[in-house]
Simulated assay, not measured.
Amino acid sequence: MIKFKPIALMLALGAFYCQGAFASQVTLYGKIDEGLLVGKTRHGDATFDVKSGFTAGSRWGIKGVEDLGNGLKVGFILEQGYNVDDGAATSSTLAFNRETALYVDGGFGRLTFGRLGTLGFAQSTGILRGAIFGVTHGASGWASGTTSLHFSRVDNAVAYKTPSFGGVTLHAMYSNGTNTDDSKNKWSENNHYYGLGALYSSKTLSGSVIFETIDYKGVDEKTKEPLYHVTIGGWWQIGMFRPMAIYQY
């Protein structure tokens, strides 16, 4: 009997996953972000380009949720990025490069697994506030710069969000593979991501405090030191206006 217990457990988890896959509420969604970019350098020719993803990456996705009763829900998110100007996927190796998430909701909060956006980035698990310029082209983007002001997406991740306490939720995330190839390596040879954060949200005010680090224990260990981020940001809705502020150390 002992030898069959792991098999029974795997079958039970597989049945649980299939129930989530055939969710009772399934939504097909997307976003198209397209613009015209005109450039002219001194002594150079003027350029005129159609560019996809100025304020947000163009994407399409499928998400669903199944109510299991007793306050318990299971859901999934599959999201793919693409370029409007040529129709190409933003990744040639990943079927859903923006997010692939399976989560469980309950009175304990939300537990999410998959390829996720970090706490200081975006996607369903991100809590960054105050980044007014998004990921736009050029130096005004929050993602621009040689060192990058955020960690983006990570594979083999698990994230936890607590229930809301007076508008405040606490968040934690861990990834055993920040690179796509990390799943092929031993645990000690991967780059590991760790994140902790707190988010306050109301109709007129929202702010977050986030601590993040990547240890670079994988292939970058000899060339990169561990990188630490502390990010504080928020916005305040005043009528038609929304002032934003953000600070990072």
Score class of each variant (00 low, 15 high):
S188W: 07
D86K: 00
A95V: 14
G114L: 04
K224M: 09
A122H: 11
K5V: 14
T180I: 11
V168Y: 13
G20A: 13
G195K: 04
I62R: 08
F22W: 08
T136W: 01
Y200H: 08
L9G: 07
F121I: 02
Y17A: 14
D182G: 02
L13N: 10
Y103P: 00
Q237N: 09
G81N: 02
S206A: 14
G14S: 03
N185R: 14
L13W: 10
D33P: 07
A198C: 02
A157D: 05
G109K: 01
M10G: 13
R59K: 12
A157R: 03
N191Y: 01
A143Q: 15
G145R: 08
S24R: 07
T231P: 12
T147W: 10
V168K: 04
I246T: 09
P243V: 03
P226L: 03
N190F: 07
K186R: 15
V38G: 10
V154Y: 02
V38N: 13
K31P: 04
G35W: 05
A8D: 11
S152H: 15
S58H: 00
G53K: 00
T27N: 15
Y160W: 06
V135M: 11
K5C: 09
G233K: 05
Y103M: 01
A8Y: 10
L199S: 10
R98P: 00
S52V: 00
G138L: 06
T125S: 08
P163D: 06
E79Q: 03
Q248N: 09
K203P: 09
S202L: 07
I32E: 01
N191C: 02
N191L: 01
W60D: 05
Y194N: 05
F16D: 10
K31N: 13
V154K: 03
P6R: 02
N156G: 12
A131C: 05
A8P: 01
Y194A: 06
E79C: 03
N156E: 12
S124M: 06
G197S: 05
T146F: 09
Y247W: 12
I2M: 14
R242T: 12
A131S: 13
L72R: 04
G166F: 07
M240N: 13
T231A: 08
D181Q: 10
Q80A: 01
Q248K: 10
M240F: 11
V38H: 14
Y160K: 04
I62G: 13
